[in-house]
Simulated assay, not measured.
Amino acid sequence: MEIYKIPFRAMACHCEVVIAMQSKDDAHAIAQKAIAEVQRIETKYSRYREDSIVSCINAAAGREAVTCDDETWSLLKYADSLYQVSDGLFDITSGVLRRVWNFKVPQIPAGQDLEQVLELIGWGGVRLEEQRIQLPKAGMEIDFGGFGKEYASDRAASLISHQGVQHGYVNLGGDIRVIGPKPDGQAWMMGIQDPRKKGALTATIPMLAGGLATSGDYERYFEVNGQRYCHVLNPRSGQPVSHWRSVSVLAPLAVVAGNCTTIAMLKETDGLAYLESTGMRYLAIDNEGRMHSDSHSESR
Rank of each mutant, 00 (worst) to 15 (best):
A257C: 08
Y169F: 15
L253A: 06
D175G: 07
F103T: 02
P206V: 06
Y78H: 15
G279M: 04
I108R: 09
G95F: 08
I160E: 03
L212C: 07
I263V: 02
H167Q: 10
T93H: 01
Q166N: 11
I3H: 09
Y274A: 04
G111C: 13
N234L: 02
P235S: 09
K198G: 06
V38W: 05
K77D: 11
V256L: 12
N287K: 05
I92R: 04
R236H: 12
A10H: 07
R300H: 14
A209T: 06
I35R: 01
Y282I: 06
S86P: 04
R127W: 14
N102C: 09
S293E: 09
G199H: 07
S299F: 13
L159Q: 00
R132Y: 11
Y169C: 08
S153V: 01
T269C: 13
L120I: 13
Q39Y: 09
V54I: 11
F103I: 04
A79N: 02
A59D: 14
M207C: 08
R290T: 07
E288P: 06
L172I: 09
S158G: 14
M189V: 09
R177F: 03
A138T: 13
A157Y: 00
G216P: 00
S242L: 04
A34T: 01
Y229R: 03
M190K: 06
L76C: 10
Q39G: 08
R155Q: 09
Y4S: 11
L283A: 01
G174D: 05
I108Q: 04
G168V: 03
D70N: 15
I192P: 03
L253F: 04
H28V: 10
S299H: 15
R127T: 14
R220F: 09
G185Q: 09
F103Y: 08
F144I: 01
D194G: 07
K24H: 14
Y83I: 04
I192N: 05
A264G: 01
S242P: 02
A34E: 03
R47T: 06
M291T: 08
R47M: 09
Y169G: 04
F222N: 05
R245H: 05
E16D: 12
